[in-house]
Amino acid sequence: MAKSTSKDAQDLLRALWSAYSATPTNLKIIDLYVIFAVFTALIQVVYMALVGSFPFNSFLSGVLSCVGTAVLAVCLRIQVNKENKEFKDLAPERAFADFVLCNLVLHLVIMNFLG
């Protein structure tokens, strides 16, 4: 029983991976970027749990810069995805320009809040 379960899980993962391999490269790059941001945020949360929340503003700005980056990247991914019919009228260049502008605003705020 256990054997078949682990085999099922392996099959499932393999199926997932092969399905994901069909994703366009530019979306894969965005996914990588999101993973990087989320991972950085997790590291900071663990660090805060170990060291304490003393410079709490710095902690908040560090984590929120990661979370904000991830959210903006996900938004970009939704907008540039060809299969997403909702945004088929929106040019990918326009989506990317929005992304850059939002990132500028985000990092401006983060820099003010960091110290």
């Binding site: 941001a37 950085t40 945020a41 590291i43 900071q44 660090y47 060291v51 304490g52 003393f54 410079p55 710095s58 902690f59 700005s61 560090g62 984590v63 810069s65 990661c66 980056t69 990092h107 983060i110 820099m111 960091l114």
Partner: peptide
């Protein structure tokens, strides 16, 4: 604050 360097690092690495 030395304890906050990881947070600074995270913001700049972003």
């Amino acid at each position: 604050i030395p304890a906050a360097y990881p947070y600074y690092g995270a913001a700049f690495s972003m």
